[in-house]
C-alpha cells in the first residue's frame, strides 16, 4: 500500500503549515501556496510529518490518500 499527500488547490490559502512541518514532502509556489514535492509518496520516516501537515492545515486542504 502506498500513501501520498495531496493538496486541494481550491482550499489552500497559503497558511504555510504543510511546508513548515513537512519540508521533505511540500514546498511553496511564488504566491506562498503549498505544493506537493515530487510524487508525494510518504515513506515510513515521513509518516509523522505528513500527519502533522494534515492536522495543522486551517483550511483542511491537505490530505493523505492510500492506494494499493
Amino acid at each position: 500500500m502506498t500513501v501520498r499527500v495531496s493538496i486541494d488547490v481550491d482550499r489552500c490559502q497559503g497558511h504555510g503549515r504543510c511546508f513548515s512541518l513537512a519540508p521533505a514532502l511540500f514546498t511553496f509556489d511564488d504566491l506562498g501556496n503549498g505544493v506537493v514535492l515530487d510524487d508525494g509518496i510518504v515513506n515510513e520516516a515521513q509518516c509523522d510529518a505528513a500527519y502533522l501537515a494534515v492536522a495543522n492545515c486551517p483550511e483542511h486542504a491537505v490530505s493523505l490518500e492510500e492506494s494499493p
Binding site: 490559502q13 504555510g16 502533522l52 492536522a55
Partner: peptide, 23 residues
Amino acid sequence: RRENRHLAFGLGIHRCAGSNLAR
C-alpha cells in the same frame, strides 16, 4: 500542542497575507 488548526491569520480568501512575516 501538536494539532493546531488555529485561525489567528483568518480563514479563506482573506488569510493574512503577511502571516509568514508575522511568524
